[in-house]
Structure formats: C-alpha cells, structure tokens
C-alpha cells in the first residue's frame, strides 16, 4: 500500500507540482515553438510522453544493470576477466553518453515502428519526432532517474523500474498538459492587441510566468494527499 502511495506521489509531483516545463524549465523550445495550435501542441505532447517512457525504461535498465556502482552485469563481466577480484566497478562516468544514445536510438526506433505499423499515427506526429532528440525533457527524465538510482545516499532507497516509469509517464503527461494549455491560450491571444515588441516569444513567456504561478498553487498537495491516504 505504501509503495502504491509512493508511486502516486511521484506521479502527482511530476505532472503538477514539479511540472517539467513550468518548474524545471525543460522542453522550453517546443513549448514556445510548437504551441500555436491546440492540435499540434497535443500531438507534440503525446509524442514526448511516448518517447520519454521508452527512453526512461532503457535508461533505468542501463543504470541499474550496467553503470551504477556494483551493477550486476558489470560485476559479472569483470568477474570473467579478474576472477576473485573484490573491486566494485563504477561506470557512472559513462551515464551521459549512454543516455544520449539511448534517446537518439529510441526516437529512431519509434519513428520506424510507427511508420511501419501505425501510418496514421505517424502522419499525425511523425514530424515532431526528430525534434524530440534534442528535447531536454527526455534527457532530464533520464537524469532524474539516474539521481534516484545511483546518486542516492541510502542504497535501500534507490528507485525501481515502476517508480522510474511513473516519473516518465506522468512527467510526459504534465508536459502535454502544459503545452496544450499554452496553445489554447495562444489561440485566444491571436485576437488580442499585444504591444508590438512583446509579440511572439515575449508574450508567450509572460503567459508561461502566470501559468507557473498558478501551478505553484499545487505545492503541498502531495503532502495532504499522502496524509489522507496513509
């Protein structure tokens, strides 16, 4: 039960309280660039959610089994070369390289898979896929997972796969929520009389500022929720 509550708290935290865009500022480029129309924004949001889930799964997998200090696969391979050695290998210096390749290849993979099996879906958000490789939100999710797998002070508190996936899925959905809301507001803003210098990015950032303030209202919700559920 407590584990489920933990998962729920991670999910609520990722989607609302510490929203990827409005709290951590990752994925700002598409947030400003692809938020002119609601349907485009929604497509982008879903594409990011999809890729972030796959990339996070792989990132957790590699971090857990290969790069964290004392990871099983690394230990096994090391055992083949130096039987009886007591050295604990720590490959975490390779983390960033692994993540960026994981992201690039999962984007490629998703692109090919959609093209082959879901042509309609590919038409809908295939154009956003190449953009996603350099979307910081994906790398950020991987880094958060790394922090909770190999960066924790107490090894017993390291995240399992379920927690990593909760963060990824709901972080992605939180991104989709923020970008769709922003697109809705911008569609209305087109009809407004905006001072010339603020048109475009300026007014979008100001609107995002007000949205960020609104999202700050979620702070503390998880605490209440936890107290209620436990």
């Amino acid at each position: 039960m407590n584990h489920l509550v933990d998962l729920l708290l991670i999910a609520v935290g990722a989607a609302f309280i510490n929203n990827f865009v409005l709290h951590y500022f990752v994925g700002i480029c598409p947030f400003i660039g692809v938020s002119r129309r609601v349907d485009q924004a929604f497509g982008m949001g879903l594409a990011v959610t999809f890729v972030v889930t796959i990339a996070s799964f792989l990132a957790w997998f590699f971090t857990w089994f290969v790069t964290r200090p004392g990871a099983p696969v690394t230990a096994w391979v090391w055992g083949l070369f130096a039987p009886g050695s007591r050295t604990v290998l720590d490959l975490s210096i390779l983390n960033y390289l692994i993540y960026i390749f994981v992201i690039a290849s999962s984007v490629q993979f998703v692109e090919m898979y959609l093209k082959r099996f879901f042509p309609a879906l590919f038409k809908a958000f295939g154009v956003y896929l190449p953009l996603i490789t350099t979307n910081c939100a994906i790398l950020f999710a991987c880094l958060e997972i790394m922090k909770h797998v190999s960066g924790v002070r107490d090894p017993a508190a390291a995240w399992g796969l379920d927690q990593a996936l909760a963060l990824a899925v709901f972080g992605g959905l939180g991104f989709a929520l923020a970008i769709t809301m922003m697109a809705g507001i911008r569609e209305e803003l087109d009809l407004c009389d905006i001072p010339e210098p603020l048109k475009g990015a300026g007014i979008t950032l100001l609107t995002a500022g007000i949205m960020a303030m609104a999202f700050m209202g979620f702070t503390g919700v998880d605490r209440g929720l936890a107290a209620f559920l436990r």
Binding site: P197, G209, A212
Partner: peptide, 17 residues
C-alpha cells in the same frame, strides 16, 4: 520559477523595443 519567465519575457520585449 515564475520570475524567470516574467523576467525573460520583459527583457525580450525591451530588447525588441
């Protein structure tokens, strides 16, 4: 966080202006 968005938005406007 909101201060970041507001500051950058206003500074961008200022530079444009």
């Amino acid at each position: 966080p909101p201060g970041a968005f507001l500051t950058l938005g206003l500074l961008l406007g200022l530079v444009e202006w």
